[in-house]
Structures are given as structure tokens and as C-alpha cells.
Design a protein around this nucleic acid. Sequence first.
RNA 1: GGUCCGAUGGCCGAGUGGCUAGGCUCAGCUCUGCAAAAGCUGCUACAGCGGUUCGAAUCCGCUUCGGACCUCCA
Length: 492
Amino acid sequence: MQSLYIQNSLSRKKELFVPLNPPYVGMYVCGPTVYSNVHLGNVRTFLTFDIVYRYLTFLGYQVRYVRNITDVGHLTGDSEDGEDKIGKKARLENLEPMEIVQKYTNDFHDVTRVFNMISPSIEPSATGHIVEQIEMIQKILERGYGYESNGSVYFNVRKFSEDFPYGELSGRRIDDQLSNTRSLDGQDEKNDPLDFALWKKADTSHLMKWPSPWSEGFPGWHLECSVMSTKYLGTTFDIHGGGMDLKFPHHECEIAQNVGAHGGGSPVNYWMHGNMLTVNGRKMAKSEGNGFTPEELITGNHPLLERGYSAMTVRFFMLQGHYASTLDFSNDALQAAEKGLERLVTAMSKLADLPATASTEGSEADIPSLLDRCAQAMGDDFNTPILISVLFDAVKLINNVTSGKIAITSVQRQELKDGMEGYVFDVLGLKVEEKTRQDGGDTDALMGLLVELRGNAKTNKDWATADTIRDTLSQLGITIMDGKDGSTWKKD
RNA sequence: GGUCCGAUGGCCGAGUGGCUAGGCUCAGCUCUGCAAAAGCUGCUACAGCGGUUCGAAUCCGCUUCGGACCUCCA
């Protein structure tokens, strides 16, 4: 099997990927908190792991891909006075919390579909695993790493750090943190500002609450991921992914909870973190007011957008940057991506009809080496920008074959077609967007007639008629392209 | 304040010691009645200052600027 190297956030090194139980691979990715529409920055992270999932599958692994839906426990602001995000939204919109959850889960699914992301194997929700979460808290308590306080349960970070390393993933030292953490006064239920909630007692006005041995309440945010990854992937599994901004505290807490409950070493072999999408150099975030939704992006209905861009354009744009780097959003970059993608797609559509020589001898075109460069690029920490650059070399080859500058055999043509389709459609997940075939074959037939009439006019040197047809169609968004062997057309 | 990351040609964006991606823009050319579209070709950049080295965008130090995390965030 083609070797794969992954940049491991835990070791901060690029490591050869060796699954625990090949050909099976377990991957957990932190999903959205469904209290609002996802914005483009969220999309980038899920796209990153869509690529990871696709490529692992492409290599022949059987991947169990678990991505959660957070529908409870994620608090706004400081955990002491924060509100549950879902509950707050439910109050604001005067809806049942589950209506909020359903509404934004649906939105999220719509978005993933539009961007051609593959659904995870399991998509568990936090509220569906309250029992398991309570069980895990009990295990943590039994092992002495948690304590109850006024009906809530907290994780004892300092105690834990005496027995196990804490802060390895995020590179934080516990003493640095202490001096930098705002210390709330005596009314704090926590023994130590470093501690985090496993279970929170709910007050009477709280909408979402469940019975537990400690109080009627709800689980802490970090707990669900520990519970659900363990339940579906085991106490040790291959890959855990999420956005860079989840590294601390979320993922650090997850590790502490897993180790606190089950002991042993690192629960995850490879931690992967996707970097942020930025706007004018700043992280796209709701709090910055610089986020926009996929729908706004596609329609262009947003102050930051000069016009709309298709989902595939955005997907391609994002894949032209490496997932571990920040990527800056701009209209210019989107427009550049749009043109580049069109060139790639156009070349792909020519593949099947490429002229091939009858000769069985090879030509100067070295298809295996081209495809090997693709594999090398993806094998080097999913380097999609390099892959795309190789694919553009292939585009150039295709165009040169079309114009007769380079000859290939039919065998080579098939190799090239199969290889490119694998990388473009299966690995990168790009698809050809349907835009000319929405009305059956009528348009084709009508256009055929117009092209023929205009061809006749041209033969008769009736430039006025020829130009009228061309200009009028142009106003309708249809471009006539005159070539050597007659005219073709395309719709914008 | 602590921890960490980044600064690449007109724009976006790869690249961890020599061979120096790719896309877009731009220019030239081919094609064309003209144009458009398309295609081909061309365009040598690495924030600044020192240092290591035969050789540095790449390693080390300093400076400047920007960003992320440390509180919710993909």
C-alpha cells in the first residue's frame, strides 16, 4: 500500500501512518454545535477531514468515520455563568431545544451535501449518549480524578497531572496556566480554576436536563467526544481531527477524560488539526462578524462578496491551500479558483475523446510518473495543492494531445483517464456542476439550429446576421466559440 | 503577560540546504471575417539585518509586522 505521512499534532512531527488494525481505520472528528448556521470557516474543517476520509478509502482502508453532533452542554462564555448554547437559542427563538437542534442539523447536512462531502459512518449526538456520559463520569470519580461540588462534578486537573501528563497536545504547562487564569472568588464551585465541568447542575429555568446521581443537570461539553469516540472506536484509535481552535481546551480535556477513566497511554495515535479560514488576515468567526454562510456565498448576498460562487469553486479554492495553513478568503482568490477549476474540468471532459495513435509503443507522455507524483503529494500529509499542481500538468498534456503536439496510445489514454478521474472525483471530491442540462435536450436542439444558421450566414459572409446571433446569445449568457471545425457553445 | 505560528513574484498559494510547484492576472503568439472563447509560450519572488555553509526562501540569532490560542469558537 502507498505510504502515507501525517503531521501529528501530538508529536509535532510528520509520521508514517500505521493503523492499529489494518485494513481498518478509526477516525473521530469533532462536529458542529448545532445552535446556528455553519459558516464557511466551519466548512473548511469538515472539508479537510472529508479529504482525509476520501484518501484513506482511496488507499484501500476501511474507515469508520465518526463525527458527532453537539446538541447539549456547549456553554456560552465562562462556564460558571454561561448558558447552554442550544437552550439559549431555544429561548430566543421561542422553540423547543430539539427544534433548534433539528433545524441546524438539517442545515449542516444540506451544506455538506452541497459541498459534496461524504457522510460519516456514524453521526452520534450528545443527547443520545447521556447514559454513557454518566457512566464515564462515574469511572473518573472512582479513579479519583473528579469531585462533586454542589450537585456538579468537576475534573481534577491538578490531581490528574500528578499521575499523567497534562497539556502535551497543546504544549501548555500547568503552572503557566494557573498564573494566567482569571480566578473567580469563593463562590466558585471549582476547587481549582484549571478544573473543568463533567456534569453541571441545572437550575429550574434550564430547558435541557437529565437525572443523574449528582443532580438534575447536563453533561459538560468535552465529555461527549470522549464518550462517543470510546464507544464507537475503542479506548485507543487511529485518528482524531478537529479545528485548530479546539486543541485547547477541548481536545486536551478529552485526553484527560479518556485517560482519567481508562488509564493507559494516549487514546489517539494521530491528532490532526485543520487551520482557520481568515478574512483580511483575521479568523472567520461569528463573534468577529466576518462570517458568512454557504448560502450567502453561493448567492453572493453578503457585503464581503462581490458576487456568488459555486460550491465546487469554493471547494477547489480551499483545496488549493494546505489544510494546516491558514487560508485567506478574498474575491480575487475565489475568481482565480473559479477559472482554474473550469480549465481543469474542461480538460477532464476531453479525456474520453482524446485522439490516440494505433501504435502500441509509448510516447513521450509518462503517465505512470504523473500519477506517481499525485500519490506522492497526497501521501505527504494530504498535500492537495501539490496534487492540484500535478493535475494541471496533466491538463497541459491533455491540451497538447488535443492539438496534436503530443501523441498517446489508447492504453495511455485509458491510464490517464482512470488516474485523473480517481484523483479529481474520488480523492478531491470535485464534481462537474450541471448547468446546461436542466431543461432536457431542448436547449441542445435549439442551439444546434442557431449554430447552423449562423454558420450559413458566415459562409455567405453575412456578418451582420452572424454577429446578431452571437451578440444576442451573449446577452442570454451563452457564449459562441468559433473553432476550426465549426462553432461550439457554452452556457455561463 | 504566557504559549505557539506566520511573513514567498501584481494577487492567491506550495516548497524544511543546491534541480527553485501550480492557479489567476499580464504580455506575446496560434486560431478567427472581426471578436470572444480556447490553446501554446513567456514573466525567477522569498519582510529586514547579521551568522552557519562550497551553497539558504529553506538552518541559527536579532529586528519589524501580522495572526492564533490562553474565555465560546471549525
